[in-house]
Design a binder for these strands. Structure first.
Lengths: 135, 135
DNA sequence: TTTATTAGACTACACGCGTAATCCAAAAAT
DNA sequence: ATTTTTGGATTACGCGTGTAGTCTAATAAA
């Protein structure tokens, strides 16, 4: 039940960098974002500061510079965000979203096969398992 | 390629009311939200005004009051929002999200069956169809 | 050693959003 | 006819966010 700090869209970009590798200095983060985000270095530093305030990241001091690293896991985030997104747009129901995606999106045969496999697994040992051998 | 106006979270609640039935007067919308959102009537009116400015809704004048109705479809919205959400959190890849959901969420046996059926359909006539009878 | 650079801290500022309150003209009530 | 109510328009205000710039102390360069 950890309280995940709210991370804005711009801040998210910084987090992705730190999730992909850490710890990193501000300059490394700035460099990593270069060309992809078109932000001034100061802008990135502001985002880093805000993430610090929010306790989304922390740092180890090494001499005059800091080495930043995430305090929250990307997985936790994706999980939480997905949950609220789902609630907002689909009223919390997973199935409509899945149906939507399965229908609309282009999936390769391989992907379809994999999804089927996963569904099969769930049929085997899901929590909603009906104890009969259905099918 | 229509430019969908950005709708905030609070505004979304108003939109849902109007999508569910329209046209409606401000008071009807206010009433519909009552008990569920705990907003002062003025707050709802503000949201309505902002949606007007954004051209997300419009109205027909009838005497002294207005009858509001949506200018954008919920489907378009869900579609667009889902797309950007997907991009933000899953790097645009649908499969990871689907896998995530299929794994984490509790789906009933019935739902699982339905999803399988949909996948089967896709196997039959998908655009990526590999012409072999993959078993 | 004096000067220039740089990292991080602090400050800035406009816009969107949540959350209303005030103002005004018209309609309804008295 | 005068007063009250009410719908819509306008205004308010603090917080988060995007997007930086300035200030300061310390380090690096000259």
């Amino acid at each position: 039940m950890k309280e995940l700090p709210k991370i804005s869209e711009a801040e998210w970009e910084v987090m992705k960098i730190l999730w992909s590798r850490s710890p990193q200095t501000a300059n490394e983060v700035i460099e990593a974002l270069e060309g992809q985000m078109d932000w001034k270095p100061k802008t990135v530093r502001t985002l880093i500061s805000r993430l610090l305030q929010k306790n989304a990241i922390a740092f180890q001091e090494t001499g005059r510079t800091y080495l930043y690293y995430p305090l929250v896991s990307q997985d936790d985030y994706v999980q939480t965000e997905t949950q609220s997104f789902l609630k907002r747009l689909y009223g919390g129901a997973v199935k409509p979203l899945l149906v939507h995606f399965l229908r609309e999106q282009k999936l390769s045969s391989d992907e379809i096969s994999e999804l089927k496999r996963i569904l099969d697994e769930k049929t085997e040992e899901g929590p909603d398992r009906d104890r009969r051998k259905d099918r």
